[in-house]
Simulated scan of single mutants.
Amino acid sequence: MSQFPTTVHYTIVAGFAIAAILTLLHKKREKKAAGLTPKQLELVQTSWAKVEPISDAAADIFYGQMFSTHPEYRKLFPEDMAKQKKALMKMLAMAVKGITNLDELVPKVQDLGRRHAKYYKVTIPMYKTVGECLLFTLEKGLGDSFTPEHKEAWALTYEILAGVMIPFHDK
Score class of each variant (00 low, 15 high):
Leu88His: 03
Lys86Met: 10
Lys86Ala: 13
Leu92Val: 15
Pro107Phe: 05
Leu105Thr: 04
Leu88Asn: 00
Glu72Gly: 06
Lys90Leu: 06
Leu102Tyr: 01
Ala93Ser: 15
Lys108Trp: 05
Val109Gln: 11
Glu72Ser: 11
Met81Phe: 13
Asn101Ile: 08
Gln84Ile: 13
Pro107Ser: 07
Asn101Gly: 10
Lys83Tyr: 03
Tyr73Glu: 08
Ala87Gln: 00
Leu92Ser: 11
Lys85Arg: 08
Ile99Tyr: 09
Thr69Ile: 12
Leu88Ser: 00
Phe67Val: 13
Asp80Cys: 10
Arg74Lys: 12
Asp80Trp: 08
Ile99Pro: 04
Met81Trp: 09
Ala87Lys: 03
Thr69Asp: 12
Leu76Asp: 07
Lys97Asn: 15
Val109Lys: 06
Lys97Met: 10
Ile99Glu: 14
Asp103Cys: 01
Ala82Trp: 10
Ala95His: 05
Arg74Tyr: 04
Lys85Gly: 04
Phe67Cys: 13
Pro78Gly: 00
Tyr73Gln: 09
Glu72Ile: 07
Met89Asn: 03
Lys75Arg: 06
Gly98Ser: 14
Ser68Tyr: 10
Ala82Gln: 15
Phe67Arg: 11
Pro78Phe: 00
Ala93Leu: 11
Asn101Trp: 08
Leu76Arg: 08
Pro71Phe: 06
Val96Ser: 04
Met81Asp: 14
Val106Arg: 01
Leu88Val: 01
Lys90Met: 02
Leu76Val: 01
Lys90Val: 07
Pro107Lys: 09
Pro107Trp: 08
Lys90His: 02
Leu102Asn: 02
Ser68Trp: 07
Leu105Trp: 04
Val109Arg: 05
Asn101Tyr: 09
Met81Asn: 08
Lys85Val: 02
Lys83Phe: 05
Asp103His: 07
Lys86Val: 14
Lys83Thr: 05
Lys83Gln: 07
Met81Ala: 13
Leu88Ile: 01
Met81Lys: 12
Leu102Pro: 00
Lys97Pro: 04
Met94Gln: 13
Phe77Leu: 06
Met66Gly: 11
Lys75Thr: 07
Lys90Phe: 05
Ala82Asn: 14
Thr100Gln: 12
Tyr73Asn: 08
Ser68Thr: 14
Lys75Gln: 09
Asn101Cys: 07
Met94Val: 11
Thr69Trp: 10
Ser68Gly: 06
Leu92Asn: 10
Val106Met: 02
Lys108Gln: 14
Gly98Val: 12
Ala95Tyr: 05
Phe77Lys: 00
Ala82Glu: 15
Asp103Glu: 09
Met66Asn: 09
Ala93Asn: 15
His70Glu: 12
Glu72Asp: 10
Pro71Lys: 07
Ser68Cys: 08
Asp80Arg: 14
Lys75Asp: 08
Leu102Asp: 04
Lys97Ile: 01
Lys90Ser: 08
Lys108Arg: 12
Lys97His: 14
Leu102Met: 05
His70Pro: 00
Ile99Gln: 14
Ala93Asp: 15
Ala87Phe: 04
Met91Trp: 03
Pro107Gly: 06
Leu76Met: 11
Ala82Pro: 10
Leu76Thr: 02
Asp80His: 13
Val96Gln: 06
Met66Cys: 14
Ala82Thr: 15
Lys90Gly: 02
Lys75Ser: 09
Val96Tyr: 01
Glu104Lys: 10
Lys108Ala: 13
Arg74Val: 00
Lys83Pro: 01
Met94Thr: 15
Val106Ile: 03
